[in-house]
């Protein structure tokens, strides 16, 4: 079944922003949504609200939480580690998000070519995502070993001296980024591949007939029509990048020094290791606020972009 190209306004993101056309109200929708909502409220919304609410208490996981107003937020001003965590997280996101987007799009375009072996390529590129985070961390700690790691041995082969990777403040974050890209690029690629399947073949033909070169086709046909997919991938990648945790937790615990300390790693550390659950939740609330703002501007920018195209 061919899915017809739709105008942006009736599409998902317009609907996401509440622009879908109205229909008659009835009770039926609630029957459909209720089972999920029960689970959602019990196991996601409830615990999340409780968790975020702890931000206004001095809770230590044991005993009754005591309300402390904004004390935890005031304490943030005196906490240099939080500044480190924030900077590192933004740095990680600034490097990881564009890399992941560009690389996964390139891989998707490449593995979308109607040629032999592309299925193998797709499986291989997606495969790292199948491996669990603890294993990824152990494996890459080992590959990035300064003296005998696989990566440095091959870099030596090309005349590049040993990179200290995880044992230097200046390179540790690049080690985490490299691991992240390897681990998650396949997931994004699959989403892009999916988007590419929905671009009508005729449009390419038309562009070809008009004499467009490969770059022109990409610039004026693929890219605009892929915009909704790009938007989705971008959104998920940003959320995941701002919440990077597993790789850091397993590989460096935020070190050396504070070089790879990220916000969620810090939330975990203050909450569980230092038993300052109130403070950890306060940081989580700030992170929540940041992501809401990022998402807001992303949706707005996307809708402006759509209007520009039309």
């Amino acid at each position: 079944m061919r899915i017809l190209p739709r105008t942006a306004e009736s599409g998902s993101y317009a609907a996401l922003a509440g622009l879908a056309p109205k229909r008659r109200p009835s009770l039926t929708p609630y029957y459909f949504i209720l089972p999920y909502l029960v689970f959602f409220v019990l196991f996601r919304l409830g615990p999340s609200l409780a968790g975020l609410g702890i931000a206004f208490t001095n809770w230590q996981a044991v005993g009754t939480p005591r309300f402390v107003g904004f004390a935890n937020f005031e304490a943030m001003a005196r906490d240099p580690r939080l500044g480190d965590a924030f900077q590192n997280t933004v740095f990680f996101a600034l490097l990881t998000v564009p890399t992941l987007i560009v690389l996964s799009l390139a891989l998707a375009l490449f593995l979308n070519q109607p040629r032999r072996g592309r299925a193998v390529g797709r499986v291989v590129v997606f495969m790292p995502y199948v491996i669990m985070s603890t294993v990824v961390g152990v494996l890459w700690t080992w590959i990035l070993d300064k003296d005998f790691g696989l990566l440095n041995v091959y870099l030596n082969f090309f005349g590049i001296a040993n990179v200290p990777w995880l044992v230097s403040e200046s390179t540790a974050m690049y080690g985490i980024i490299l691991t992240t890209v390897w681990w998650t690029v396949g997931y994004n690629m699959v989403l892009f591949l999916a988007g590419l399947q929905d671009i009508p073949h005729e449009l390419y033909e038309a562009a070809r007939i008009d004499g467009a070169r490969a770059w022109g086709v990409f610039r004026f046909v693929t890219l605009p029509l892929l915009a909704p997919t790009t938007f989705l991938v971008l959104m998920l990648t940003i959320i995941n990048s701002f919440q990077v945790f597993d790789q850091v937790y397993v590989m460096t615990s935020g070190g050396p020094g504070t070089a790879t300390l990220t916000l969620v790693q810090y939330i975990y550390t203050t909450s569980f290791q230092f038993q300052k659950f109130g403070y950890g939740s306060a940081v989580a609330l700030i992170l929540f606020g940041i992501l809401v703002i990022v998402a807001f501007f992303q949706i707005r920018g996307y809708r402006r972009g759509l209007k520009g195209v039309e």
Binding site: E169, S253, G255, P256, Q273, Q275
Partner: peptide, 23 residues
């Protein structure tokens, strides 16, 4: 203890040690 000495967190002792030995 863990705020000052924990081995898998950016505690003052870890930061001091790694900066002196590694950097």
């Amino acid at each position: 203890f863990s705020e000052i000495f924990a081995s898998n967190a950016p505690t003052p002792m870890m930061v001091m040690g790694q900066r002196i030995i590694l950097e």
